[in-house]
Amino acid sequence: MNLFAYTIIAGIMYGVFFGLVGLGLNIIFGVMRMINLAHGDVIMLGSFLAYWLYELLGFNPLLVVPVAVAVFFLVGFPLYYALVPRLLRSKDPEMLSFILFFGVSQVIEAVIIFAFGNNQRSIPFNVFGSAGFDIFGQRFPIAWLVTTLVALAAFGFIYWYLQHTRMGYATRAVMANRDEAMISGIDVNRISAVVFCMGLALASIAGIFSFFIIGASYPSMGPELTTVSFAIIVLGSLGNPLGTILGGLIYGVAIMFMQSYFSSWANILPYVLLIAVMLFKPEGLIGKAARSA
């Protein structure tokens, strides 16, 4: 019974974090209808940024968050304007962007290996203090609580942005229908660029805290995270950012139960979930979207 309660609570915290892992991918998909195949590598970049600032300047991971946001807005804008408008004019933007971001992912991985070598890196758990905290009689590391709160804050921010700002309103219009939004005078390119940067920044924030949930970071961790993220956003609902948290929760709780009770099969779970949802409920568990041939 103890183990059962522990598994559920751990699964929820794990799941909220994995919601954050998928959030950046989903928001970019929602606005641009492109799958950022370098998503996992951006997460990896975030974790290396955090590691580097921690080792060099002793930065607390929480302090790295604004740095990451600044960095990815600075990098994201030029990257967007260099790549995306050109792609959108091509004959098959969806497929070509998929391949293009795959190229970007390879470049990121190679560059990071040049810069940091191949060793794995981690930030110690006790950077937020070594005390634990209790929920319903179960003890968890404080780093998990911090991570969960950061993830919830990110979701809160996206909710506020979409529902309560002018730009968020325009963003929702672009998500609903890109062409109509353009006709009604919205600067679609600018919105897309901002959302693109936001997506990268969210991914990097997930990376900063990945040490405490996923474990040590290494340069080639990206592709697997991209696949897991995709599974999560398909589970939640493609193109609906706030739905991502549902996907994350399902994934988190399910994987914790697998680990507790069928540990040797746990790694197959995200893939099976992904295929099953795509085949039987391609619109996601709560959404509409998703095309099929």
Binding site: N2, L3, Y6, T7, A10, Y14, I213, I214, G215, A216, M256, Q259, S260, S263, S264, A266, N267
Partner: peptide, 20 residues
Amino acid sequence: YQAVPTSTSNYSVLIHSIQA
């Protein structure tokens, strides 16, 4: 007496299963 995938990177729940 349990096997886990070599790719396992989070042992928290496993440690609790063991503790049980």
